[in-house]
Nucleic acid binder design. Structure first.
Lengths: 200, 200, 200, 200
DNA sequence: CATGAATGAGGGTTCATTCAT
DNA sequence: GATGAATGAACCCTCATTCAT
């Protein structure tokens, strides 16, 4: 039904503008010119809306195994995509831990997805090594780069907000630049060349 | 007065255990065997309690200029201290953006403090370069390391939580290890030696 | 909706019996066998109820220009009507200044309405002169009579209460008698005759 | 004790500025730099303060029998004095009926005093007749003038406020002018002359 | 006399949720 | 599917009042 979609869109807008607690179900319904009863007919409660929004966001970040970025360029493209998606649902990472603490189901799901995400990041990095973009002279480098990447994807938007930066989608480019900064010492000449082409 | 301290301690405990929204002023008062009226006699509202807890935390992280870490060892010591303090007030970074969105005064204060913090991080890194621990072969490295450090200090605890790690103070050592991982390619032999001694 | 009306009626009853402060929104709801939530669903707060009651009262006192009393008899009829309306909403003038001090919007509205009321009183008195009921031998008589009328309409009920009179609708006849007492020296024979017929 | 007086003065100031409900005992104490406990040591509660302020005001309006105004000039002087006193305690008539509804003791006292006041007004008016200032051609004139006077003394300040007039002590002169307006048709030449001299 | 921490009932209000229509 | 009135528990907070010091 279109109504279900409209509710998600309206809630997302309010969540992004303020915070999830300020946007009560009645507010959301009112903003959509809809009765509170109808909203609850479609979604049991606000948590259900948030969970659904998370699923939507999550669905847009998933990759088929064969789509896994296997080059610097592809990684950049993927992270740009990710930044765009996370920006669209920016309320989510903004309140991440708060939301998880209020909904055990969401928490379990998120942790599962996040661990899987981390696993994929390691695979992608290993692929970059295999493809001659990266060179890891000692242990734990891949682990470190994976942590950096995960931290950046999860918290870059909150990070920018805590610096008081005027925040818009454009600034999210920094998310990739940060990851690139961490990879740089380990880039092969091929990797450096690829990076230079992206920046150009 | 002792009561003011007791309220802060009781609120901190509840905030860390659950979340700030779940710990209503009445809950806090009840947990302390105190009347709601008395709690409000000492603190205007929950925001005032949170603000005060932030100030306490902040006060414990501040450094006199002459105390600024000027060696890898000192940096490690300082970050351990920081991790300890942030662990004590872990609710704060857990809900960071949510809390800032609910209290404009806290937000302004936090951003100001955070920018100052970033400035100090850059100074410390520059000091490490001057003292022969670090060597920066190209531009932006210091910027990158500062971002890494700031991200880690602010979000390492949330980061661990999103991985489902059983969380305790001990695990916070990872915060420094992450920063160290970022610095490693830029360490001089002197820097590497210092690091090896810390790890031993 | 009927509920909105019921709330106004219930609130009016309690306000008239005691005072507006004693009749809390919860009291009103309880007296109507209604949940507090429902009362606030219909009226934002007590001020909104009071404002609405004022508007109701005010609406019942307004006159179309062509209905303006142009004879002593018509004036009497109008003042009887006024006394009846003000009696119905007697809490309002009882707490008049208190209520105005608590609600700036109501205050602005009341003053505007009151000045308009005064203007109409002057017009009515001038009409009585034109129609040969009144004769004004020197200046300021109309002004004086207008003040008297306004004072009487606003404060006659409070005035009676401060004399400890057992108060009921019947006693409000005094409101017109007071105004008539002020007009008497200026009545023409025609005016006196009209008055005599009213009293008979 | 000086403290008792200071409390009355502080309360009076706050009452006049806003309204009695807004000025809580804690506010009054705070405004005086005094502890709430101390305030309650001197006055059981806010009602006691209000009652005491009423007594003060009342005491300043009372006349020894031999001081009773027996001329237009003396009446004018007395009403100017009254206006000054009522202005000083203007919160009282502003909230008159509200205050009476909250304190049965005050109510009983006020009604008693008010009836006595009315009695004295009638005596004064009768004295003016005896002394050749006034002439009453028909019955009830004295009653009417007494009502007018009482209404004016009690409600002139509230009356001015409901017209939105900028209110200060100076404007209270209108209180006497209103009474004079009512007496005018009944003044003898001697009375008119006295009045003319006052106005000059 | 004076302090000020402490009480606790109750204030207005919010809001997720239900349910008859 | 949709409405919107209704519920009621809970929220934050106020304030007259008490009382140990």
């Amino acid at each position: 039904m279109g109504t279900k979609k409209k509710i998600l869109a309206g809630a997302l807008k309010l969540f992004n503008e303020g915070n999830t607690q300020a946007a009560t179900t009645n507010h959301i319904a009112a903003a959509l010119g809809m009765s509170p009863g109808n909203l609850h007919y479609h979604y049991k409660n606000r948590e259900a809306i948030i969970l659904r929004l998370y699923e939507e966001m999550q669905a847009q970040t998933e990759l088929e195994p064969q789509e896994r970025p296997d080059s610097i360029e592809a990684l950049h493209a993927h992270m740009s995509h990710l930044a765009h998606v996370y920006w669209t649902y920016r309320f989510f990472h903004r309140e991440l831990l708060f939301l998880l603490s209020r909904d055990p189901e969401l928490k379990a799901r998120y942790i599962r997805d996040n661990l899987a995400h981390r696993g994929r990041i390691v695979l992608v990095l290993a692929g970059l090594v295999d493809n001659g973009y990266l060179q890891v002279p000692y242990d734990n480098v891949l682990e470190h780069l994976a942590d950096t990447t995960l931290l950046a994807t999860q918290f870059w938007i909150p990070f920018l907000e805590t610096l008081g930066d005027p925040l818009d989608e454009y600034h999210l480019e920094g998310m990739f630049q940060h990851v690139q900064g961490a990879m740089r010492p380990y880039l092969t000449p091929k990797g450096l060349k690829a990076l230079a082409e992206i920046s150009a």
